[in-house]
């Protein structure tokens, strides 16, 4: 990566300094060489980093990977990694976090989060955590959620409703902020061996 690339990425992110982009490159290198040593993050590598196993299917991993992979070419390039992670910075605009979460949960990318999609995600999280719920309780969870979020009662959550909903329940955005990003140069100090700029 040239200094120009680093500076452009830092500038585009609006959150990271050049040194922080370099520190994130250390993390990127580690993930992108974990299974296929080609300097690109494949889904199995993201899965290994998040789940400590590279096998099995996970709906949420698929969604995260899909949103990171802007070019939709089946790998996460470093630029895409920085773009997506910048949304998770503690200082990133909350509007960006709200939109990113909406896109995550809008499984079929119809511009709405539909009841069917929420059902699918709840079933997926129950399977992931090996919890069983009765159909009645599952329906009750969905009813309650839609009573609260779907203010125009059309059976789906539009972007505006989503925004009002998460602003009323800010804890739903907790996983959209990574406190680690405040201090990446300390977490990955080895960037200093390759740095293009000294702060």
């Amino acid at each position: 990566l040239s200094f120009r690339d680093l500076a452009r990425l830092a500038d585009e992110s609006r959150c990271f300094s050049v040194n922080e982009v370099e520190a994130l490159f250390e993390l990127y290198k580690k993930i992108s060489c974990s299974i296929i040593d080609d300097g690109l993050i494949h889904k199995e590598e993201l899965q290994l980093a998040l789940f400590k196993t590279s096998s099995g299917q996970n709906l949420f991993l698929d969604r995260v990977f899909d949103l990171f992979d802007e070019k939709k070419n089946g790998v996460i390039e470093f630029e895409e990694f920085i773009h997506a992670l910048s949304v998770f910075h503690p200082l990133a605009p909350v509007e960006d976090k709200i939109n990113f979460a909406f896109r995550l949960y809008d499984l079929r990318q119809t511009g709405f989060i539909e009841r069917e999609e929420v059902m699918q995600m709840v079933i997926a999280i129950l399977m992931e955590s090996h919890v069983e719920l009765s159909d009645d309780l599952l329906e009750a969870i969905l009813d309650k959620t839609f009573e609260d979020a779907d203010t125009d009662r059309d059976g789906k959550i539009c972007q505006e409703e989503w925004k009002e909903f998460v602003l009323r329940h800010p804890n739903l955005l907790k996983n959209m902020t990574l406190p680690y990003l405040r201090d990446v140069t300390t977490a990955f100090p080895s960037f200093v061996f390759n740095t293009a700029v000294e702060d």
Binding site: L137, K174, N175, Y180
Partner: peptide
Amino acid sequence: RPAVMNAFELISTSQGLNLGTLFEK
């Protein structure tokens, strides 16, 4: 009826959505 959780509260606990794991050594 007992208090019921918000669906998105449940969903947001997925390991796949908690990217902090990437930074854990």
